[in-house]
């Protein structure tokens, strides 16, 4: 495949601890195309977060290589947007200043991005909250602020690590719709790490199933439904066949 955004070749990560080394993931080969949404599912401790950190350039692989859009150094990783389970907003900054943080860190002109920030906020249902403080908002709203922050600089790669794990089921479904809208609107290449199979199948073009110790890729399941997908899709027969297949791959 010639056109790829990121490619992992035979990646292994070994964490050094007092008892020698612990291999977290091994033999990972993965290619992500531009505009693709890739879900990574697996049980706790299967190395899926480690894999995400390797892609983010936060962890250097002890073997193999990560090739980002053709360049082989990790320095090209500035164009990443990240969203974690916890919103990680800075309580001393207003919502708007939190959203603009990545711009500030890149030393770009903040004024140029205020308009975009307000537009993102409006799309996320946060209109009018720009001068509020994060702690004045509900958990779901805080996570939407964090999503705006992840998107403000139009990252070439959006990395999501269990992004909605701490939200209630209804809020989580709302976030799925908002996230899917945001991804489709600006065509973000996205990697979504989750242990929620339903979330992975609903949002991804392809689901990577990880398992074992050390963690390996056990299967890759293409999810052919056209995006954007409606929430009703989760009640369809085909959708649930995918869920059952992936659930089977994860074992007991």
């Amino acid at each position: 495949m010639g056109n790829y955004l990121i490619k992992l070749r035979d990646v292994e990560v070994r964490y050094n601890n007092r008892n020698g080394g612990l291999v977290a993931i091994t033999g990972i080969n993965l290619t992500v195309s531009p505009g693709e949404v890739v879900g990574i599912v697996g049980r706790s401790g299967c190395g899926k977060t480690t894999l995400l950190k390797v892609i983010a350039g936060l962890v250097k692989p002890t073997r193999g290589e990560v090739i980002y859009n053709g360049s082989q150094d990790g320095g090209g990783f500035r164009g990443i947007g990240m969203l974690f389970q916890s919103p990680l907003l800075l309580p001393w900054r207003t919502v708007l200043r939190n959203i603009l943080l990545p711009i500030e860190l890149r030393g770009e002109d903040l004024d140029k991005y205020v308009g975009r920030a307000l537009e993102l906020m409006e799309r996320m249902g946060l209109k009018g909250f720009e001068d509020s403080y994060p702690w004045e908002l509900s958990g779901g709203m805080q996570q939407r602020v964090a999503l705006c922050r992840a998107l403000i600089h139009r990252p070439s790669l959006l990395l999501l690590d269990e992004p909605f794990g701490s939200l209630d089921a209804i809020t989580r479904e709302e976030m799925w719709v908002l996230l899917q809208g945001a991804i489709s609107y600006e065509n973000y290449t996205t990697i979504l790490v989750t242990h929620d199979i339903r979330e992975a199948v609903l949002l991804s073009d392809r689901v990577i199933v990880m398992g074992g110790r050390p963690g390996r890729i056990k299967a890759e399941i293409p999810i052919p439904f056209r995006r954007p997908r409606s929430l009703e899709l989760q009640y369809s027969r085909e959708f649930n066949d995918y869920i059952a297949e992936i659930r089977g791959l994860l074992g007991d």
Partner: peptide, 27 residues
């Protein structure tokens, strides 16, 4: 500073000096 926050800042391209002035000192 929480590890996750630190990692997020690094992923956003923050330098150590930026993490210090924009997060550690206000915190």
């Amino acid at each position: 500073i929480e590890k996750e926050l630190w990692e997020m800042l690094v992923a956003f391209g923050a330098t150590k000096a930026q993490i210090l002035t924009k997060v550690a000192i206000p915190r």
